[in-house]
């Protein structure tokens, strides 16, 4: 299961051109769905307006090199390490899901397009990565679904209550879980069940990639834009109208009359409400 290219094996019963066309159709669905989503929700317009508002309130101009540095920092911090999340468990689960999905996707594309023929020897690395990626998605995804999801952890709802917001995570989990089970059934030579599981796997995958306008699949695009906008607003001084962070070592803040009671207090007061998880429903 971890060393066999299941897509090459599948090409014995389904022409490889159809498998490749399916993968291309999924990529087209994601691209089309994202563009539709951007137009329909007017998210691009929102971000342009936010940029204009931020520039109008700016206390300093940001030069192009600094903007580039902010963009690099956004990629390195917000995108690659999901630094936005304040809950460390959620961050780990998200990273597992994100990197698992990327590995799963890349290995699928490589196996379908570079090693489509059963006669060709697929390096065992790719099937192993495919299975590893799917397992990472499953681990992070089920952890999120049953324990971390805010409906369950903060709202106290049953983990089995399904809402439209679950379309993305559920179709992703269904796709990877069914993919793994299908790969297993094919490796043990279960003909009938392989066909059934393959059909379910394809349905789940089509829902995942085809459901972009209705799911939060496109969050990977707009959350990155939001993170960049936040960094830009902090750098140009507009800070989305937020007050600047307090600095108790700065005489301007330290010597204020209102801060008299904190004069002799330690600089780090520890955690207040953040000491506990928000699950007091």
């Amino acid at each position: 299961m971890f060393t066999t290219n299941h897509f090459a094996e599948l090409s014995a019963s389904i022409p490889i051109s159809i498998i490749q066309a399916y993968v291309l159709a999924m990529i087209a669905l994601v691209a089309g769905g994202t563009i539709y989503d951007v137009i329909h929700k007017q998210s691009a317009k929102y971000f342009f307006n936010a940029v204009k508002k931020s520039e109008a309130n700016a206390s300093r101009n940001i030069a192009a090199p600094e903007k580039l540095s902010l963009a690099i920092h956004t990629v390195a911090s917000d995108i690659l390490t999901s630094s936005e999340f304040c809950n460390p468990n959620r961050r780990i689960a998200h990273l597992l899901g994100m990197y698992g999905f990327v590995v799963y996707l890349i290995s699928t594309i490589v196996m379908v397009f570079a090693y489509p023929d059963p006669e060709m020897t697929t390096p065992s690395l790719w099937p192993a990565l495919w299975a590893l990626g799917a397992l990472m998605v499953c681990f992070g995804g089920y952890w999120f679904w049953f324990f971390i999801r805010v409906d369950v952890s903060a709202e106290g709802q049953s983990p089995f209550r399904v809402r439209r917001a679950d379309l993305f995570i559920l179709s992703l989990l269904a796709s990877t879980t069914l993919g793994l089970i299908w790969a297993y059934s094919q490796s043990v030579g279960s003909g009938f069940w392989s066909i059934v599981l393959l059909s379910l796997y394809l349905i789940a995958t089509t829902v995942l990639f085809g459901g972009v306008p209705w799911s939060k699949f496109s969050h990977m695009f707009f959350k990155s834009a939001a993170a960049f906008q936040k960094k830009t607003a902090n750098a140009n001084g507009s800070m989305n109208n937020l007050p600047r962070p307090a600095d108790r070592t700065d005489p301007d803040d330290r010597d204020r009359h209102s801060m008299e009671l904190l004069k002799d207090a330690p600089l780090n007061m520890g955690l207040g409400i953040k000491r506990e998880r928000p699950n007091h429903y």
Binding site: R149, V150, D151, A154, R164, A165, P278, N279, Y281
Partner: peptide, 21 residues
């Protein structure tokens, strides 16, 4: 979507959107 506002709202009116979470 961390749920801190849901947890702290004394009026219990901060909730999670069923579409966008």
């Amino acid at each position: 979507g961390c749920g801190h506002c849901v947890d702290i709202c004394p009026s219990d009116i901060m909730h999670i959107d069923p579409v966008y979470r």
